[in-house]
Amino acid sequence: MIITETTQNGISVVTLNGTLDALSCPEFRANPAVGDPGQTVVLDLEKVDFIDSSGLGSIVGAARKKRQQECDLFLACMNDKVRKVFEITNAQKLFHIFDDTGAAVEFAAMQQEACK
């Protein structure tokens, strides 16, 4: 899996490319922006071609740690295949999901402002 990280509007955007399963999720968790609970992150999932319960679990886990620190994790550009895995497990209820990274970053920045 290829993980790239950029910053827009003071928000880290982490873009995943490839497969998020039990083999690759340690790599995902080890990403500094994802692993740091004090950082709000937008996760771009457009190029994730497959995700299973391990991948889902690591996203949920990262979000939990961030929310304990008043930060958050937003999801963007989910393709249908990924969306269905979230839906089967009802995990979509836990997230704000955007179809556009830019809009997600704006929303994240606004929420961060409101928190301060």
Binding site: I97, D99, D100, G102
Partner: peptide, 21 residues
Amino acid sequence: SFGSLQPDDSVPVLLGKNRRF
């Protein structure tokens, strides 16, 4: 197409969440 929302999303938030659409 199909998507998700949070129960208390306002109209502007919904437009934002579906900006690409």
